[in-house]
Simulated scan of single mutants.
Amino acid sequence: MNTFEVKDMTCGHCSSTITKAVKALDPGATVQIDINAHRVQIESDTLHAGQWSDVIRQAGYTPVAIQDGAQAAAPVAAPARKGGCCCG
């Protein structure tokens, strides 16, 4: 299981955008999202955590990998969003 904290994921639109980005690369991946906790969990045999982090970043968000309940990496600036999220 690959777990990320995504502080700039704030609504259902954000959740949908991340899910679509993951499913585009691995339609068989299991994606669990907790918007209130800003957590994304991806279960996949296709890519590793660093690659999933890149997928979330390319979708316009700022993921921080979480391992065993601790932050594993510092956030990296996300690219500018095209059109932005409905929540600003």
Rank of each mutant, 00 (worst) to 15 (best):
1 M>K: 09
1 M>H: 10
2 N>F: 06
2 N>P: 00
3 T>E: 12
3 T>I: 14
4 F>R: 05
6 V>T: 02
9 M>W: 02
11 C>H: 00
12 G>S: 10
14 C>A: 03
14 C>R: 01
18 I>M: 04
20 K>S: 15
22 V>C: 08
23 K>H: 12
23 K>L: 15
29 A>S: 11
30 T>W: 05
30 T>E: 15
32 Q>I: 12
33 I>V: 14
34 D>H: 10
34 D>L: 06
35 I>E: 01
37 A>F: 08
43 E>W: 06
45 D>H: 11
46 T>V: 15
46 T>P: 03
49 A>P: 09
50 G>Y: 09
51 Q>C: 06
52 W>T: 01
53 S>L: 05
55 V>W: 04
56 I>E: 01
56 I>D: 01
57 R>G: 03
59 A>M: 04
62 T>Q: 11
63 P>H: 05
63 P>L: 09
63 P>E: 01
63 P>W: 00
64 V>C: 09
65 A>V: 05
67 Q>E: 15
67 Q>Y: 11
68 D>V: 04
70 A>D: 14
72 A>H: 13
73 A>E: 15
75 P>L: 01
76 V>F: 02
76 V>S: 10
78 A>D: 06
79 P>D: 08
80 A>G: 06
81 R>E: 09
82 K>E: 13
86 C>D: 09
88 G>W: 06
